[in-house]
Each structure stands twice: as structure tokens, then as C-alpha cells.
Nucleic acid binder design. Structure first.
Lengths: 226, 226
DNA sequence: CGCCGTTTTGAGCCTAGTCAATGTACGTGG
DNA sequence: CCACGTACATTGACTAGGCTCAAAACGGCG
């Protein structure tokens, strides 16, 4: 997949039809196929056949929907261990792209019941992953519908700190400002201005034009969180 | 339940602990307990033990989250046939209230695996209901994050027409303006003004201060929908 | 060094929110 | 039967938070 351009769509994991691919990019697993995607590559698009669902091994995936005029809503960033792309119907209801370089495992949906038969715990993992996605979605609806720009950013930063940092204070954002904006229902200008303001008020540490963030005053951020 | 006031919380279906209740309000079923709630009654609150999950028999349930200062986001209206309130963790992550008079069936979560054993189709129904909730949530995030007030109202009206009317054109809204506002991330004033404007432009028919709606120009509404 | 993608900053505007008053429907009690 | 009270909905005037448009700054890379 690393040899393909960023705009192409993968309707199936490389190797599924015997395609010649770099050794490092795909690897057969007992139950799924490992895939490597580079920055910006599309994993699937809204409307594609939902033949596979996925688990993130490393890196970050953005899943999103578009309006006809191009407005975008990123409904989630999927990080290590997250499962996504499982659908009730036959088509994907959203698109998914690699935020940076990413490794995922693709599972064939038609083999879901077989996977569950083989591994009793797998079914629970799927159900729990789906329920956790729903919980995240519910929290995010509250954010999108009722929080101010400052509250949105505070919530986002605290969540990212929890999900991608060991000390829950210092971390590197995998995505750019436009991704954050389209996730929080804001514009890139508002995202940038809010970060600058947080830094000026001593809530966060922020190297100029960088994606590394340090949370200096988590208490104040939590105060903004609700 | 009909004898209780609107603000009380049900931590369990009446009858579960031998409470004396009106005959008409609860009825034991093979797999669950039928309950009747009157307008405004709380089924469960955020943080309550998620001992039961529910299926709507008739009427409409609103599920919502609150911020500390009282701002509310209604993440869904559950109508006939919808299943809701199943959680990954031990607590409910949102509150649920009857919009009008409602009948639901309460299923004990601890018996979920038994229910699935008994009825092979039940597990699929649960999984599908959960996935459909997730799809709805994703659509709704796009609405909340990226649609204008007019687009939000158009989407909402078309969705309600599909879900609670036979001809998909004439229907009675079960909820009041403040519920619509808190569902769409707007204020009641904006909801009211937008409806009035739609009526003036001939998109809908609207008896004054009434909840009955007729869609006159679905094409124009669909145009606003994306 | 210079280009390009990204981020930051500034100035002005607009959509939807706030505050306030009026209108309407309905149930209750005199 | 009507007067009143309450809950809900509509309408108006004004405000403000976040958006748009525009330009400058920064960083990485050939």
C-alpha cells in the first residue's frame, strides 16, 4: 500500500487477490490480514462495500462523512487497539483515511461468525468495541451540540492526553489543525486561536507551529470540560 | 408507574421487587417486563446501574446528557421497535425519559446471554440495533458539527416523517420545541423561527402552535438536507 | 535558498443566541 | 360557563461567538 498514491481507495486488503505487494506492508495473520498505509491513504470510502472491518495496530485513522459541498465531519480518530468499520448494512457509512503512517488488521466481515466460533472472546471484543464507539459518539454529540469552542478544545486535549500519552500530560498530536477543526465542528482559525489563548493563559505548553502539546494546568482544563 | 410523579427515577421495572403497581402498567413477558410510563417520567438517569435495557413498544423516549450548568443534548429519540440502554460498562451513560405516554419492555442485562441462547435471532437483533444506533449517531454528528439551522430542521423533519408517518408527509411531532432544540444543537427560538420560515416559503404546513406537520415540498427540504 | 503545506494572526461580518414581551392552548376552580 | 393560571410557542430587538477573507510567519525539504 505504501507504493500507492494518497487518494486511492482500497476496496480490499492488498494480497487478498494475490497482488504483489511489499513484504513489509501486508502479513497474513491467523484471523486477519495486516496492512500498512502511509499518510493520507484512503482505507475505504462512504458507499464502498463493507467487505472488511479493521483493527488499528499503530498510528491513527480518521473516519468522516462529507456533505455535498465538501463540508466534513470527522466522527472519530481511531487509535491503537480500536476496532472500526463494522456495519449493519452492506455498505460503509463513512470514509476512513490514514492520518499518518498506520498499520491495521483487516478482518473479512463474512468470516465474523466463524471468528467468533473460533475465539469466544472475539465476539465480546467486537460487541464491546461497538458499544464503546457508541459511548464515544454520545459524548461527542454533547460536545458538538452544546459546548463552546474553548470547552471543545479542552475536552479534546484531555482526551488525547489520556489516549496517546503515558504521563497523560505530554504528547504529540498525530493530526493537523484542519482535522481537529472538522472533528470539533470548528474552523482551523478558531482551533489555532484557542490553542494560542490556552498557551497565553498558562493552560498548555505549545511550541510554535508544532504538534507537541504539554498540559500545564489540567485542573483548569477540566474546569472547562463541563 | 403511572401513579408516580414525573421527576422520579426508576432504577428497576416496577414489580421486580414485588412492588404493588397498577395492573395495566406492567405485564410479565417471556423474556422481559412490560412497563407503562407517563409523560415526563424518567426511565433511568446517567450514572444509574445499567441493570436493564429497553425496547420501545409505543410512544417516544428521549435519551440525553447534561453539562454541569444544565445545557442538554438529546442524542436520540427512540420510537417503536428501537432498543436502547444497553451499556458496555456497569452504569448508564445517559438519562432516558418518556416524551409522552410510553410503553417499553425492560430486559435484564444479566440475562442477555441467556436470551441469546434461547432465541438465536435475539443476539442479531441486539447487535443490529446497536450498529444502527451508531449509524444514527454518526449521521447526527455530521448534522451537529456541520449543518446550518435550516439544514438541521430539514433533516429532522424528513427523518421524523419517515419514522412516524405512513405517507411520510403528515405527522404529529411527539416532542416539544425545547426537545427539538436540544436534539439539533439550537435554541427553541431558532427552531420556532425556522419552522415559521419554512411555512411561509411553502415547504411545510403548520397549524399555529401545533405539533402537526405536513411536508408540502419534500424536494426543497431534501435540497436543504445536504 | 526558495517553494509549499501548514499555522498563526488580524479585521470585519453574519448566523444563531440572548433577553424580553406577546400570543395561544388547555386545565382548574369559582 | 367563564376567569384565571400555567405551560408552551411565537415574534422582535439586540448581541456576540465563531466564521470568512486576507495576509504574514513558520518549518521542512529539495
Amino acid at each position: 500500500m505504501q507504493v500507492q498514491t494518497a487518494s486511492q481507495t482500497h476496496k480490499f486488503p492488498a494480497g487478498a487477490f494475490g497482488l504483489r505487494t511489499p513484504v513489509a506492508s501486508t502479513r497474513p495473520l491467523p484471523h486477519g490480514t495486516q496492512m500498512v498505509l502511509s499518510k493520507g491513504e484512503e482505507l475505504f470510502a462512504e458507499g464502498d462495500d463493507a467487505e472488511f472491518f479493521y483493527e488499528v495496530v499503530s498510528g491513527s485513522i480518521r473516519s468522516y462523512k462529507l456533505l455535498s459541498d465538501g463540508r466534513r465531519q470527522i466522527d472519530a480518530f481511531h487509535l491503537q487497539g480500536d476496532i472500526f468499520g463494522l456495519e449493519a448494512g452492506s455498505e460503509h457509512r463513512f470514509s476512513a483515511e490514514a492520518v499518518g503512517d498506520v498499520t491495521v488488521i483487516a478482518y473479512r466481515r463474512s468470516r465474523l461468525s466463524a471468528l467468533i466460533q473460533d475465539d469466544a472472546g472475539f465476539g465480546d471484543r467486537i460487541m464491546n468495541a461497538t458499544l464503546r464507539s457508541l459511548e464515544r459518539a454520545q459524548d461527542h454529540m454533547l460536545l458538538l451540540g452544546r459546548k463552546t469552542a474553548q470547552e471543545k478544545m479542552a475536552t479534546f486535549l484531555l482526551d488525547m492526553a489520556d489516549r496517546l500519552s503515558d504521563d497523560h500530560e505530554h504528547f504529540e498530536l498525530p493530526m493537523q489543525r484542519s482535522d481537529i477543526a472538522d472533528h470539533l465542528g470548528l474552523t482551523i482559525e478558531t482551533v489555532s486561536r484557542t490553542l494560542t489563548q490556552f498557551a497565553r493563559n498558562g493552560l498548555i505548553e505549545l511550541l510554535p507551529a508544532s504538534r507537541s502539546i504539554g498540559l500545564c494546568n489540567k485542573l483548569a482544563l477540566r474546569g472547562l470540560n463541563a
